[in-house]
Amino acid sequence: LLGGELTRDRKWPWQVSVHYSGFHVCGGSILNAYWVLTAAHCFARGKKLQTFDMYVGITNLEVANRHTQWLEINQVIIHPTFEMFHPVGGDVALVQLKSPIVFSDFVLPICLPPSNLNLHNMSCWTTGWGMISPQGETGKELLEAQLPLIPKFQCQLLYGLTSYLLPEMLCAADIKNMKNVCEGDSGGPLVCKLNETWLQIGIVSWGRGCAQPLYPGVFANVSYFLSWIRYYMETVPNPPQILPSLSSSLRNNLSTLLTIMGSLLVL
């Protein structure tokens, strides 16, 4: 984040750090115990799923605490329109975890917005561990920035004819105070508060550099992908869990029962 400020733990408990080969590459957000929402372009072709790691309950990338959880990816579902109508269109991915996240004050899910949310005059924030300068410096601490939403028409004017915006995209940046998302923030959440509850309205997707002339950050508009997100979260079964070792008494009872059943079948 350019112009971001240090945050405190527990303030953004849904933040996820996506690591590849041991390095932070993208942000993400917790939707529920098994599902993380992030950007499709974080999983560029050719990258092996086994080489990714997910971390929750973390604010300093170099300091794990007792709330930090390391989770493995079970599968990644990329939106079917990814790169179809735009070089970074449909930039949404759902990551299913192999084991469930354990929630605490430091690890909580973010809410999905209603489909008809009026974004006018909402106060929105984004968080991430992305670059903190146009020269590419990165920080280890999670940063936060309040980013006003920029009307689509104005955003398209700022981008001129070089980059077109799809209806499923939204723009946010604090041009006056030079606050913007940057490389490494991709996949992270743009959240707005409504009636004391935070809703995720955007996923950090693309932009042009992250400094002067300041081109606003472009986000995937979560409302456009709601039915797709809900469909997969509701239909894909949770991955099989490695059963904890059965207690000996339970194992004995089980074997006795199976023996009886076996002998009954023989009779």
Binding site: A33, T68, L71, F103, I110, W198, P244
Partner: peptide, 27 residues
């Protein structure tokens, strides 16, 4: 970072935890 062990499944999350409501509200 401790790798999650199956024993943790015992306290695996309740699915009804409230979303979007951090304990620590920004001041």
């Amino acid at each position: 970072v401790s790798r999650r062990h199956p024993k943790d499944q015992a306290n695996s999350p309740s699915s009804d935890v409230a979303c979007g409501q951090p304990v620590l509200q920004g001041k």
